[in-house]
Design a protein around this nucleic acid. Sequence first.
DNA 1: TACTGTCAAGAGCAGTGCTCTCGTTTTGTT
DNA 2: AACAAAACGAGAGCACTGCTCTTGACAGTA
Lengths: 239, 239
Amino acid sequence: MLSGMTAKNLRARVRDELTSEIKAIARRQLTTEGANLSLRAVARELGMVSSAVYRYFPSRDDLLTALIIDCYDELGAAAETAEAAVDRADLLGRWLAIGHGIRDWALAHPAEYALIYGSPVPGYRAPQTTVGPAARTTDLMLTMLADGVAAGTLPADPGPDAVVLPPVPDLAAELDRIGTLISPTVPRDLLVRGLTGWIQMFGVVTFELFGRFQNMIEDNRRAFYDHQLRVMAGHIGLR
Amino acid sequence: MLSGMTAKNLRARVRDELTSEIKAIARRQLTTEGANLSLRAVARELGMVSSAVYRYFPSRDDLLTALIIDCYDELGAAAETAEAAVDRADLLGRWLAIGHGIRDWALAHPAEYALIYGSPVPGYRAPQTTVGPAARTTDLMLTMLADGVAAGTLPADPGPDAVVLPPVPDLAAELDRIGTLISPTVPRDLLVRGLTGWIQMFGVVTFELFGRFQNMIEDNRRAFYDHQLRVMAGHIGLR
DNA sequence: TACTGTCAAGAGCAGTGCTCTCGTTTTGTT
DNA sequence: AACAAAACGAGAGCACTGCTCTTGACAGTA
């Protein structure tokens, strides 16, 4: 009873260390092997036998899930810290910080970005534990929008020559449902414009990392991305 | 000499048939297995031995390349036929037709779309033979823009409150380089707006197919996509 | 008819995810 | 201090993969 309470078991400590070491090696191999990483190779690099790794992750998919959660958390943290350095009232600055934070992390960890934002692994079904970390970046944008609404610097009016939502009642209802679910203060039209910017933000990063810009934009991708961010900021109404 | 000229050799005929049958089976397996399809499974379904398939495709990557080219061509053809049905002067209609043509094909062939627009396969390097088919969709958009410029219905002026390109001379030079390379009549600012719409178009499809809209937009994705297309059309200046 | 190139088949190699068993070690409880 | 329970690493083994090499059979050409 007493020895069991002393901080932590030796077993538990070693287990935690090995668990994170397995994840570290797996992420390193992710860079060269992609989503189809080899458990045996990880075990080999660890000096263990492949079956021993199954004591820590019951299957390869579980290891992948752990990596996915870690990557989502890292990406979310990167975006959050980049955004936290900007004045709260500077909505455009916060938007740019989020965007560049995401892109910088993605460029530094291309394989990890492909793992979480690339093609879904055929047999793999992402468990519910991943949705929380995955929502960190979008939550960040939504709270920024909500801040703008609260401060009055972000009008709900889309402007005179804006493209209005199509008169599909179901779509409006669905958007209102997610609107009230995640951010009740953000009006529908603003939410839609935010979604457009959100898609564009990740779309540019995805295209850049997946080689879509080859032979087109080579040397000035950051400036090009920055311009895309500002275009979408203008569309949303951030200034 | 005479029998050799009769249409085609029996060998060559059988070879062509088997080649396309292998590709058909491989594409069917692509649906369930993703990018890591099994040559042995394809051979099994064909009633052949795995080594026999290597007579037709020297490696698994070569089979993948053939599939990729076919998919690019199919997607390009789908976009072209959808766009060809619209009046040439109706730029907005052409833009919408291209967009929905791409999305419809992607929804009908999600695994194939993931193959060409998803995460790059780690060890795989796309050969030069794929860039031609891959450029069909973008060429379609560019000729549409060039048509608008030629007809005078597409002004180069981005508008009074548009976000201007950042004063990065290299970026401007790079954009002008690709502009003169692929479509000399399209001015730089219009080209940039077209790029924005191009990225958004594929970004929405990618997000939809890769499960990014789950628990958000479920029942009205086509309407949502249509709205995104119209937003970007407004940004480009198509009307 | 004789030759040449193509073909499918089979064996084999190294690698994979995963399961099961076997001794060993640590843990929590009498 | 003694003991049962749990956790652990190692090893063998199964079915699978991409790929190579060899062998024997067949078609096309001369």
